[in-house]
Amino acid sequence: MVKKILMSLLPKIAIQAKALRKEVQLTDARLTILQQINLTINSGETVAVVGASGSGKSTLLGILAGLDTVSSGEVYLAGQPLHQLDDDARAQLRAREVGFVFQSFLLLPSLTALENITLPAELAGIKDATARGRKLLSDVGLTERADFYPSQLSGGEQQRVAIARAFITQPAILFADEPSANLDAATGAKIEDLLFALNEQQGTTLVLVTHNPQLAQRCKRQLNMHAGELTELKPEVGDVA
């Protein structure tokens, strides 16, 4: 009983990577993209991964989100061993636990703003998807744009729709890949505010990849990726090898 109480007081682990390694086979050589990554991210943490282009940030994000597989090592997402799951099982886990915000928004051009937002909820089998979608649309200030297609929206509006889409399933973990890189400074700042506000509101774990030092500063933790190795720049909790 005491043990159970003590356990509940300890922070929950959202993501964990042990001795993670990623290699790709080129025509005549084998390239190591990530080497010996050990990382623990607790629930509710906001973590920024910074680093130069080509340093392996996006690869790490892909692996942690269950989009990509490891060459060796172990990765746990919401307690599930991603390294042991097949493609479909990882997809189901993403549907339950993960939200995404991409640099180039990636809205489906054939769906309206509202339909884009409700899509993940429908995929996860959530019944009140439309009601939730309308609420989120209002949260991101686009109530009037519900029936607009992506091509009829500005970049900032598209990213706001993307953020609403990311939060509709109330995911435990949100991955954001350069969420404001395609936007001007003012719009980018608004998007970042929105992202952090919703994150705070829903208590989501946020892992974002960015070049932007200001954006990284807003996260509790900052990790630097350099030549496939990860170092902690702004340590709070957790250990980084």
Binding site: D88, Q92, R94, L108, L123, R165
Partner: peptide
């Protein structure tokens, strides 16, 4: 890309 997106959002192949 649309397929990649819906798969990233949790659709199985």
């Amino acid at each position: 890309m649309a397929v990649a997106v819906i798969k990233a959002l949790g659709t199985t192949t």
